[in-house]
């Protein structure tokens, strides 16, 4: 297969970017999207050109490092799939493919397709944890947790922190990401004591990082590779509202 790639190239955080066109030749359907880019990069390097920089690590859909907007859709639009798990057989021979970085004020571009997502870490630091130190934890079976709650918490906890939800949102809102973490922790009895402060503090941190407001259009959930459901946002809104009412938060 052969493809024409239109790729966003940007030298550094403070330089202007532009699209460059490349030809991807002799691509096999079994290649993942990132392996296709590896092949293009090998050619660029051999020809003495700088390769296209992009992030990836696990290449199996779990670390959340890969982050490409493919033909306008974060992760490329295959249901429940990160771009590292997207394979070239799902494209048509001869197709033109546009590749861009996540675009959001809170995720500035560092180089080419690599963005800075440390804002997500800071949002977690504002309350995305249970305040327990190591040692002295009670026996793990001391507090039974209904299977339905444990499963619900797990479903929300599968968020890989990739940021596709932000990239897909016209307001660059991080509500799906924050909702996923708040839901994970707030439905568990261990997370209960801090549930209102957690919701309020994380929403405030999200706002101050420059993520936008949520208008519940659902573009986030549509691209989420872990299929985090929109209802985590309702859960977040509810705990946030109660928190504000109680005047908690720092």
């Amino acid at each position: 297969m052969n493809f024409t790639l239109k790729v966003w190239r940007q030298g550094g955080p403070d330089t202007a970017g532009r699209f460059e066109t490349y030809q991807a030749k002799d691509i096999q359907g079994e290649m993942s999207f990132l392996e296709m880019l590896d092949v293009v990069n090998e050619d660029l390097i051999t020809g003495g050109h700088e390769p296209i920089d992009f992030d990836s690590d696990c290449r199996e859909g779990i670390c959340g490092m890969c982050s490409l907007v493919v033909n306008g859709i974060p992760h490329g639009g295959q249901k429940g799939t990160t771009v590292c798990q997207l394979h070239m057989r799902s494209f048509e021979d001869g197709q033109t493919i546009t590749i861009e970085p996540w675009r959001a004020k809170a995720f500035p571009v560092l180089k080419d397709l690599v963005v800075d997502r440390t804002a997500f870490d800071r949002v977690i630091q504002s309350g995305g944890y249970i305040s327990v130190n190591t040692g002295g934890a009670p026996d793990a079976n001391a507090t039974p947790i209904a299977k339905i709650d444990a499963d619900y918490a797990f479903d929300a906890a599968t968020c890989i922190g990739c940021g596709a939800c932000v990239a897909a949102c016209k307001n660059s809102s991080a509500m799906l990401f924050v909702g996923a973490k708040v839901t994970h922790l707030n439905v568990l009895p261990q997370g209960h004591p801090e549930r209102f402060t957690r919701a309020v503090n994380m929403v405030e941190a999200m706002d101050s990082e420059g993520f936008g407001a949520c208008t519940v259009t659902g573009a986030c959930a549509a691209v989420c590779p872990k299929e985090i459901p929109l209802d985590v946002i309702s859960k977040l809104n509810k705990d946030y509202a109660l928190g504000v009412l109680k005047g908690v938060g720092v």
Partner: peptide, 16 residues
């Protein structure tokens, strides 16, 4: 014990 206290959602039986 530590992981459960941190909120790790391990698999559970129906009895919790």
């Amino acid at each position: 014990d530590q992981c459960v206290a941190q909120g790790v959602p391990f698999a559970r039986e129906y009895g919790g």
